[in-house]
């Protein structure tokens, strides 16, 4: 049995090291691994084994959280492939930032629109379309796998973070409007 602490998340879960994952397989492997490394199975084991089983379980959980979420999975995969994200890099595609600014401005003034909830739905739909488009682009870039594609994939992941943030804000705004 190989040491889970030495394997990367994809290896641990027996998933090919790529952006697309089989979410059913992932969930199934999660249950198997959890059982395999569960601290209950090490009750009579040595102290060292007990400690290790806790570390294994934590790693199994971290890996699951990372692999099941596209954004985290993409960031992790980029790091593995040698193209880690530079979170301090603030230069981004101008058109993308402009759109983000406009969407946030609309969200800020949404209470003044004729039908604020309808407007929220419009923003949400737009976000969903943007996310799906980004998702497809990411799949292509990872499948392609060249240095250029992977750098572009990094830009896509950064953009996805802005979309995710905006989606949270849309949800908060909706609660305010309904509350």
């Amino acid at each position: 049995m190989s040491d889970p602490l030495q394997q990367n998340y994809f290896e641990l879960y027996g998933c090919p090291q790529q952006f697309s994952v089989d979410s059913q397989l992932l969930a199934q492997r999660y249950l198997e691994l959890q059982q395999q490394y569960h601290p209950d199975r090490f009750v009579t084991a040595s102290e060292e084994q007990k400690r290790l089983s806790l570390q294994w379980t934590a790693r199994v959980n971290d890996a699951f959280q990372t692999l099941k979420q596209p954004l985290l999975r993409a960031s992790y995969l980029l790091t593995l492939l040698g193209y880690p994200l530079d979170a301090a890099d603030t230069a981004m595609d101008g058109d993308f930032l402009l759109q983000q600014m406009e969407l946030r401005e609309r969200l800020e003034n949404i209470a003044a629109e004729a039908d604020p909830l309808q407007a929220l739905d419009e923003i949400r739909l737009r976000l969903q379309q943007d996310e799906e488009a980004l998702f497809q682009r990411l799949e292509q870039r990872f499948a392609e796998g060249s240095a250029h594609s992977l750098r572009q994939a990094g830009e896509d992941v950064k953009q996805m973070k802005f979309l995710q943030r905006l989606r949270e804000e849309v949800n908060e705004r909706e609660e305010q409007l309904l509350g």
Binding site: A87, G94, L97, M101, K158, K161, F162, Q164, R165, L166
Partner: peptide, 13 residues
């Protein structure tokens, strides 16, 4: 000037 912080999703103009 338009910039964004990928770490937190902040946008600044």
């Amino acid at each position: 000037g338009m910039v964004g912080a990928p770490a937190c999703g902040d946008v600044m103009r």
